[in-house]
Amino acid sequence: MDEQMLIKQIALKTRNGNVDNISRTNFYETFYFQHPEIKWALLAAFVSRNAGWNMCDLNGDVYSKILSSSYAELLFLTYERANWLIFQDAFPQLLVYHYSTIYRRPMFHLLKKFQVSSFMYHEWMRFWITRNEDRLLKALIINEQNVIQKPVIDHPLFRKKIFQSLPFKGQDFLHYSIVILPTLQGELFGASVKKFVKVDERIELGKTIAEILFKPALFPQFLTFVRKTTHTGSRFDFEKFLLGRKCRTTPFLRIAFPVIRHQKPVEQSWDEKGKVQSKWFDPPQMKQPIQITNWYKRKRKEIEIVASIKEWFQLHRKMD
């Protein structure tokens, strides 16, 4: 296969994988099992699962009573846009690496055909030589969080209607910004970020989740969850182990939401506008408990109570 055919092949596979949250998750997981040395792929799969759970919450039994339909729709589009952009940027990188292993020579010069940052070109070349898996993991976290900063986090519509909104500022209550790593034993691990709009904070969260994910004592449990649990978007995927629930309170993602068509923005690469900060490669600062099972159960109960109260007030307002 010549390089032009290879570029077309990578573009086609990326397009097929970037249909919706379910396809992205499946493609990340499939790639990781092909190339377990690329740890970021498994991290991305778990983050993608979390995005799906957050999306489906918006059409679930609880959040639909708390949030307006217009707000929920825009919040869904925010999740969808960010995750589409990350996949559109990252998956060609993974495929270029895949073909490099097949042809047994680095082919990372092809990354420029997919508007991948020069920062990542140098990081992939470094990895090809050093095989430093943790360095590449952090580099991909850094890159993808910078990729979504301008087109999503700083986008005027999303910033005003979502990130500056009262519901999002109460995200600690609604747990928008927590990443959960479930196990089949019904235990949950994870971490959250307070200032989601800050790229430094999201990078720190990514590194923290990666640190938890690949802890030798926990990693086999997370891997077993991925192998044995099909991602549907519904929190029932893990709540059935945690809460012993017999039915879903959130729907299947592909039933709840349509496929969204996106266009990749044409703009200057983030690393041409700002400096890569050395602190981004530092180890994460593990400040909070990583075992969050009891916290999650308590938080779910609190949200259900708030939803019931709001539903009661709305019902009595109509009766009056």
Rank of each mutant, 00 (worst) to 15 (best):
V193D: 00
K195Q: 12
M319Q: 13
L77F: 09
P284L: 03
F257T: 10
K246N: 10
F173S: 08
T249N: 11
L94W: 06
F236M: 06
F158H: 03
I203C: 05
V47I: 15
S48M: 01
A51W: 02
S100F: 03
Y121C: 04
V147A: 02
N50R: 00
Y63P: 00
R49W: 08
T130F: 02
R126W: 01
R202A: 01
I260V: 15
K264G: 02
A139S: 14
Q268T: 13
V266W: 08
E304I: 12
H109Q: 10
M120E: 04
F222S: 05
G186K: 09
Q88R: 12
Q268N: 06
L75F: 15
S68M: 08
F76H: 15
L140D: 00
K138W: 01
N143L: 10
L157H: 09
R298G: 03
P258H: 04
S177W: 07
M5R: 15
I86K: 06
R49D: 01
P220T: 11
Q291M: 10
K169S: 12
Y97S: 08
S23C: 09
F114D: 04
E3V: 13
K273T: 02
K113I: 01
T293G: 04
H175A: 15
L94M: 15
W128Y: 11
P220H: 08
Q268K: 13
V259C: 09
T30A: 13
G190W: 01
T232L: 04
I303F: 05
H175S: 15
F196V: 07
K161M: 14
I309K: 11
G17P: 10
K8A: 11
F238Y: 15
I203D: 01
M1F: 08
A191W: 01
G206W: 03
S64A: 12
I290N: 09
N50G: 09
N83E: 08
R104C: 08
W84L: 12
D134N: 10
M55N: 04
F189R: 04
K13Y: 11
L111H: 07
I129L: 13
K138Y: 10
A45P: 01
I305E: 15
Q93V: 07
R135M: 03
P106V: 11
G60D: 05
I309L: 14
P156D: 08
F219P: 00
F214Q: 01
L205G: 00
P36F: 04
F158V: 06
L223Y: 06
A90R: 02
P36L: 06
A139C: 03
Q277E: 07
S23E: 10
I305M: 15
R300H: 13
Y121V: 07
V306R: 12
S64R: 14
V116M: 03
N59D: 12
S308R: 14
W270F: 05
I10C: 12
K297Q: 11
P283D: 00
F27L: 09
A41Y: 05
I162E: 09
T224I: 12
F173R: 07
A72Q: 02
I162N: 09
A210T: 03
N132G: 06
I102A: 11
L77M: 13
K246F: 05
S234R: 03
K299H: 14
F119N: 00
P156E: 08
I309G: 05
H262P: 05
L42R: 09
L74P: 01
K318Y: 13
F127H: 07
E211L: 02
L253C: 11
T208K: 07
K13C: 07
E272N: 11
